[in-house]
Amino acid sequence: MHSRKIIPVILLLAVIALFPVMTRSEYILNIMITFFLYVILSESWNLIGGFAGQISLGHSAFFGIGALVTRLVWLSGIPVIPALFAGGIGAAALACSVGIPCLRMTQAYFPIGTLALAMIAQITIGNIFPLPGSLSSEYVAAYNLSSRYYLAFAVGIFTVLTVYLFARSKKGLALVAIRDDEGAAAAVGVKPFQHKILALLVSSFMAGLGGGIFAYQHVSYFYSAPFELSWAFLPTLTTFIGGLGTISGPIIGSVAFLALSELFVLNLGEIHLLVFGATFVLIVMFLPKGLFSLSVGIRSFLRDWALRLIGRGEAKKL
């Protein structure tokens, strides 16, 4: 990141951090927590889907396991932050046991294989825990929305920062090299499989943390709710629409998704998904680098145009 970009980003983060002080509206705070959740999920998916190029349709399994483990550990009396980590580790453990065999599938089968795994997880958890889990009265009495807000905010920053640093590290560059040409990368000594495993582990760990936030935020929900496939489709949509393999892409996509779903929240059916499905198709067809590339493209077009204007002016002066 350029140093001149750091100041606006810090200012923006400071404003976001002051939200719970500025407003007491539960609606706004809950929306913001959902936004952090979307960013965590999308950005973690971006690591495996965008940077490693493995389109996973099974991210909901990691998210769900994170939620499940965090909830159970937290309700057993352990403070929430260790519980959150337990959730992340649970998700990474799931990735170890079932995700790694999936990485052996060739590119076309990886999405379908992970989708199948997500469905298995959803049905199995729904069978094991058929009833919704609710907080006991002492937990409800201690419920404090701004602590949820700050925890989600912190995990959000952690996730974005991790993906940012990972993408710029040597491992991240190797990952992009593998995505762009696996054979060439292997020929110069980059080990494709090991790097993909690393990306999957980091990605699933962060998705598990996101699941933990979900478990911490909600008072009562069916244990299978965070396993629903929509949690796997969401990061795919937001990341593709925002910009695959970029840091700001998933954030842009999350904002767009949230704004649209709030706009259509009272309508019959899920119109925001209808719009997003159509947008997704158009993006894959015409703008494979996402909306982010559109903004970059417009900016460079404007710059060229401005330079040409200036250049012409100077030529006239001479």
Binding site: I55, L57, A108, L273, L274, G277, A278, V284, M285
Partner: peptide, 20 residues
């Protein structure tokens, strides 16, 4: 890969269109 992605978007689109 591309047909998978396009049809994924179509699936979401059509599912929700049918719901509407």
């Amino acid at each position: 890969k591309n047909s998978l992605l396009i049809s994924f978007g179509l699936m979401l689109f059509l599912d929700n269109l049918i719901t509407v």
